[in-house]
């Protein structure tokens, strides 16, 4: 419950406070958000499986974000940033879908 509240407070804070993202960070934010979403879905699935571990969640969340940003950064440096970030989004999207499928089986038993 507190976790859900944290998400809501985060969204509201983002909309109300309107923080300015540094220009250097700007290209990485969307990918980082998608990566974090993947980690959150994974964590939700783990919780439904009953194997949730907050340490694992923290590590997977942070490493997902960092690795995704790193890939985009590397892609930009190599001149294939657009393609690479598309690839990252596709991979993360597939993982989110499979996690969502598992969550669905738990919640709806279908």
């Amino acid at each position: 419950m507190i976790a859900v509240l944290g998400l809501i407070v985060g969204v509201v804070a983002g909309l109300v406070v309107r923080p300015v993202v540094p220009t250097v960070m700007e290209p990485y934010l969307p990918i980082a958000v998608v990566a974090a979403l993947d980690a959150v879905f994974g964590g939700l699935r783990a919780m439904l499986d009953g194997i949730f571990n907050d340490k694992v969640f923290v590590v997977s969340f942070l490493s997902n974000v960092v690795v995704a940003a790193l890939i985009v950064f590397l892609g930009d440096k190599l001149g294939v940033g657009a393609q690479l970030s598309t690839g990252v989004v596709v991979v993360l999207g597939i993982r989110i879908f499979s996690n969502a499928a598992a969550i669905r089986r738990h919640v709806f038993r279908a």
Partner: peptide, 27 residues
């Protein structure tokens, strides 16, 4: 709602996620 370490940790991370989400959507 229970205030446990796991819930608080997840809450912090989800706060960060929500913040990033809102910023990105708005921008």
């Amino acid at each position: 709602p229970r205030v446990t370490r796991a819930q608080l940790t997840v809450a912090v991370l989800l706060f960060v996620l929500g913040l990033g989400l809102a910023i990105q959507v708005r921008s």
